[in-house]
Amino acid sequence: MDKGVDAIPDEIAELQSDAFHVGFVPNTGSYRKLLPLLQSVSAPDDLIVIADDDVIYNRNWLDRLGDAAEARPRDIVCCRARQSRRNALGGLRPYKKWPYVNRELRDKRLLPIGVGGVAYRRGFFPDLSIFDGCNELAFCKDDLFLKFCTHAHIESVTRIANGESLFSIIETGETLFSLNKRSYPRFGKPDGLLAGLVRTKRSASVLRSLGLLTTENDKTNQVLADHFGFNPYQ
């Protein structure tokens, strides 16, 4: 988790106006960009858009998300999403085998990815006690946690057209995104022959397909499925 800042920087504070407010919240991890705002508004139709601070957004980004959210008020709307995939036995394939959606698509099983920006309604979170223990269940994996939180309260998920063209990620070396995607054998740390296979891209792909190689996101998805008692990707 990044260290955050101790106070609002002067250059940001100077931007405040009747139409633009900057709030300071404690550094409670990745949920700090959404939970304090959910606690401060109550109208079910209030639109809330989250974004990351290491991304440059197109000047039309917010308009595009807002327009799509107005067109489908019961949907979560996003610029980037992953689509879950199943193996030959009907089980979920590992997270790294879930492709990014490259077109406009509406499907309740999509996983919205926060880096591109995601539009929610306050009403998608009717009971905020659902966030109790969120850091213990899904530390720095808010995309996965929010998927489970909202699934029962939405109609679908919409990935807007040309969403990837609306933002650019600032490259800063190893990121939370790369750490959560790092692969591990399902049973313990890589050792001996298995470690060699993990280091080989083609072999690692085969191991993932067999369900023998998983990521931190796969582990967290299972923890959340056990906690909530359902799987939103079914």
Rank of each mutant, 00 (worst) to 15 (best):
L213T: 01
S205Y: 07
A204Y: 01
T214N: 06
R199L: 13
D218L: 12
T214Y: 07
T200Y: 10
K189I: 00
R202I: 15
G196A: 11
H227E: 05
A225I: 03
S203N: 06
S203A: 14
L213Y: 01
G229T: 01
Y184A: 06
G211M: 12
H227M: 06
D191T: 01
L179Q: 13
V198Q: 04
K181S: 14
Q222K: 12
H227W: 12
D226G: 12
L207F: 04
N180M: 14
S203E: 04
L193Q: 09
P190S: 02
G196H: 09
P185S: 02
N180K: 02
D191M: 03
A195P: 07
V198L: 07
A195M: 12
K219V: 15
G229A: 06
T215M: 04
F228D: 02
L197P: 00
T214D: 09
L224D: 01
L194N: 05
A204T: 06
R199T: 05
R182H: 09
R199D: 08
S203W: 05
V206E: 13
D218V: 09
R202Y: 08
F187R: 06
V223I: 14
K201R: 13
L207P: 02
V223C: 10
P232K: 04
G192D: 13
R182I: 11
A225K: 07
N221K: 06
G196M: 13
V223D: 06
S183T: 11
A204M: 03
D191Q: 04
F230K: 08
G229V: 04
V206W: 15
S205D: 14
D218F: 14
S209T: 10
E216P: 00
F228Q: 01
V223L: 12
R186L: 12
L210K: 10
T214A: 12
N231M: 07
F228C: 02
